[in-house]
Design a binder for these strands. Structure first.
Lengths: 195, 195
DNA sequence: CGGTCTCTTGACGGAGTTCAAAGCTAGTGG
DNA sequence: CCACTAGCTTTGAACTCCGTCAAGAGACCG
């Protein structure tokens, strides 16, 4: 468990990667956030629920996944410290989520509700800019991920993941990596055997 | 070739699908738009150019595509009457486009530059709402398309396209449909043979 | 009417899946 | 602290989907 001042600091330095935010501004924003601890395998957003919050990971590891018609899990995304996790489509349109968000590790999570975010936008106009930048980054990330799947072979997808986010390989079991890469665990094992 | 008043009307009824816009508001917006006619195979946005405009299709058929390392064309998107076409990432970030936009038919296109759109936002604040909605729809469309590729077999992708946008099948040669579906023309031919 | 563009056919091969089974590994309770 | 078990990873064989290559058959256009 991380202490509140430490959490606030972590958030501040995250924000400062994009915009300068004073301690006071960070404080104002922080008021609107909820801190919560989760153990492993807890659910933050259920399939078919409307996503009413953005989640920011202070510590831990989240996953977004759905179960397909064959009953097997397909992992859409992992997220670690200093990443946002949400279902943007569900959040924006207030439609039922088509995936579940849950923890793969004991995690400390900040969350902000839609209502509170609206209030925060009014109190701290600069936040609009931050969240626009985050939305743009999300859009670009989605397009990058498309290219990742469309242009690369499964071996290349694995190597790219290993190069770009080696953390995942350390912290996530291989069959989940396989699911994320959209191949079977058996074939991933084959790939890894041949370097 | 379509006449200017008719074009204005078409734009107005498009906008009214999302927000009520008076004739005056439509007129104000229309001032910022350029009308241009293109013949078949003309290029609207070149690869490596920065995308400085949004395009709205009054009449005709556009395509977004790139050439991969093997020298074969991959089609990312088709667009027909009353659709917007742009490279949002390139437009927003002012980075070189990684695909080309060109015409597959004789087309009549409205375009609006970034500068003009900014001016129009100031003159007609309601436009902000329209373009936010369009941006949201784009994001949702991108996610849908992801699912289209990730969840469906090539046969199902073909059937979905046939069901949802039969227009494309009438107006676009099969080898381009194949490229869009991410399969070879030979295999698409196979699929179609077996219903 | 000749050529380019488009669609189809068939043989072959490779990438990746499925199924079944065995071998590891790590967490848990006793 | 050990032993057990559930969770995870690997193996191999058979099979499927789909790409590649090569060739031919229409169809459209000047």
């Amino acid at each position: 468990m991380t202490s509140a001042p430490k959490i606030k600091n972590q958030l501040k330095s995250y924000i400062n990667r994009y915009i300068p935010f004073s301690a006071e501004e960070t404080d104002s924003f922080f008021k609107y956030l909820a801190i919560k601890s989760y153990s492993k395998k807890e659910i933050l957003l259920e399939t078919n629920q409307v996503c009413k919050q953005h989640f920011f990971i202070i510590e831990g590891l989240l996953r977004a996944h759905y179960t397909n018609e064959k009953g097997t899990d397909k992992i859409i995304q992992f997220a670690i410290e200093n990443w946002w996790m949400t279902n943007l489509e569900s959040y924006v349109r207030e439609t039922p989520s088509n995936f579940t968000i849950d923890t793969l590790e004991k995690s400390t999570i900040l969350s902000i509700s839609k209502d509170n975010l609206e209030k925060a936008f009014i109190e701290i106009p600069k936040l609009e800019r931050l969240f626009r930048i985050i939305a743009e980054n999300t859009l670009v990330a989605i397009q990058r991920k498309n290219e990742f799947y469309m242009k690369l072979s499964s071996k290349e997808r694995f190597l790219t993941l290993q190069r770009d986010i080696p953390d995942f390989l350390q912290r996530v079991p291989m069959y989940m990596i396989a699911s994320y890469l959209d191949i079977t665990p058996e074939y991933l094992s084959e790939i890894r055997k041949n370097l």
